[in-house]
């Protein structure tokens, strides 16, 4: 059983890193801000989740395990909030542009 744990951890860490890589890849493949946010928030959240899950196996105490989980929860909340703020700013900018363009055209 003990011999299996490092392997499981290694696989989970690699899956986590793969998701981070894909999320960053999305930054290049998608061309507008909002779809990029979709890639970054959702995929990176999963990447961090897998890494946190892998580290849970080697947590020396319950408090440390909860700390790892807390880091993920806080990062999740920060990612949802900042995604929303950036999206709202983009929307406001688009509406501003549309409003200033119309009278001139």
């Amino acid at each position: 059983m003990d011999a299996v744990v490092p392997w499981v951890q290694g696989i989970l860490l690699m899956i986590g890193c793969a998701f981070f890589a894909i999320g960053t890849f999305g930054l290049f493949r998608f061309t507008d801000t909002l779809t990029r946010i979709h890639a970054l928030t959702k995929v990176d959240n999963l990447g961090l989740g897998f890494i946190a899950l892998a580290l849970l196996f080697s947590a020396p105490s319950l408090a440390v395990a909860m700390k790892i989980a807390l880091i993920w929860v806080v990062a999740l909340a920060a990612s949802a909030t900042s995604a929303h703020l950036v999206a709202r700013a983009v929307r406001a900018q688009e509406q501003d542009r549309a409003a200033t363009r119309e009278p001139h055209d």
Partner: peptide, 9 residues
């Protein structure tokens, strides 16, 4: 959220 991450990936 797992489905969301996999979907975008």
């Amino acid at each position: 959220s797992v489905v969301a991450g996999i979907d975008v990936a």
